[in-house]
């Protein structure tokens, strides 16, 4: 049927008369305020509150530092060369295209690149990061804190415990060599992002120290230092974020954090993941929030971890489960994180 023309064309117009959408009613904002473009050898800082969840565009900059310390709806970075870019929590996606030799610190729901080369990215990503037609990319775990950053994560609906920074999917793999690799752990963020903690930003209390980062820094796919691992689950309570943080921090000289995730579980899920442990005391709690799973690695990890947990206040201890039996650890760890991956991809 070939009915295009006047009749079909009238419809949309009629509709817009009847129907007003939220974007028809919103006040006009100048997009230029949310765009950084055509800069050469400059230094741009946006303070918290100056973007406040709007969309942002960065394009066509050269040898420029662009530090956006605020949360953002969605961002594209196009045609930039030799730039250092810090992007606050992004509720949607960051899409980097046609960029070369740039460094990024970013937290986002989706991470996408196309036609890029030589990027170093310190990343926190709620879903699997993807790259296309891009080479010489390096990834490291997000490592940053400043006043208000945690609240910006919340406003962007990003979890601090769902970071897939090293689990990259490459749409255009090459046979000889992987297009992505890991940033050396010795790299100094202060050197890579000049001016990040200088006087102009001192009132934000910016820190690039591992121990201060809002997102706990994880080992990812790097080789584990020891044969001993341990698995800890933190069940929902008002303080579960802090409890999980405390465990990792208290253990930091003895164990490394391999990975950490939070997820909603039903009683059935719990029984499947922990078939040999009786977790019925936690059944009531799991309906009220998500469970945080932590994999740690280090010599004699299980005992060290049990010792540390026993120093916590009793009410915190009650919300924690850690494998006492070494034989259970690998199965529980694997099932918990596999469950998270399956949930993420469906």
């Amino acid at each position: 049927m070939g009915c295009f023309g006047s009749k079909e064309k009238e419809d949309p117009e009629k509709k817009t008369e009847e129907k007003k959408y939220s974007w028809d009613k919103r006040e006009k904002i100048d997009p230029a305020l949310y765009t950084v473009e055509n800069l050469n050898d400059e230094f741009v800082i946006r303070e918290p509150g100056s973007i406040d969840g709007q969309q942002f565009i960065i394009q066509n900059c050269k040898n420029t530092r662009i530090y956006l310390f605020d949360h953002i709806a969605s961002i594209t970075v196009d045609d930039c060369v030799d730039c250092c870019i810090i992007v606050g929590p992004v509720m949607g996606s960051i899409f980097i295209r046609d960029c070369e030799n740039c460094k990024f610190i970013v937290a986002c729901q989706q991470f996408r690149t196309r036609d890029c080369s030589k990027l170093d990215v310190f990343l926190s990503c709620a879903t699997q990061p993807i790259i296309e037609a891009s080479a010489k990319l390096k990834f490291g775990c997000y490592q940053l804190n400043y006043d208000g950053l945690k609240e910006q994560f919340e406003k962007s609906q990003l979890s601090l415990f769902c970071n897939n920074w090293c689990n990259i999917h490459d749409f255009t793999p090459v046979t000889e060599k992987s297009n992505s690799s890991l940033i050396s752990e010795e790299c100094s963020l202060n050197e890579m992002f000049p001016g990040i903690t200088d006087s102009s930003t001192s009132k934000l209390n910016i820190s690039t120290n591992r121990g201060d980062s809002v997102v706990l820094v994880s080992l990812g796919s790097r080789p584990k230092p020891s044969l001993d691992s341990c698995f800890v689950a933190v069940f929902p309570s008002n303080s579960s974020y802090q409890v999980a943080r405390n465990i990792v921090t208290l253990l930091k000289d003895k164990c490394v954090l391999v990975q950490i995730r939070e997820i909603n579980l039903t009683v059935g899920d719990l029984k499947r993941i922990f078939p040999n442990s009786d977790l019925s005391v936690h059944h009531a709690a799991i309906s009220s929030g998500s469970v945080i799973g932590i994999e740690l690695n280090g010599d004699n990890c299980c005992n060290v971890c049990t010792d540390v947990v026993s120093t916590l206040p009793p009410e915190e201890q009650r919300s924690i489960y850690s494998s006492l039996n070494k034989d259970e650890v690998s199965g529980e760890t694997e099932r918990f994180f596999d469950f998270c991956d399956i949930q993420m991809n469906n």
């Binding site: 729901q109 989706q110 993807i130 949930q343």
Partner: peptide
């Protein structure tokens, strides 16, 4: 709609 992975 908060955890959507790019479709492979």
């Amino acid at each position: 709609i908060n955890h959507i992975t790019p479709t492979q």
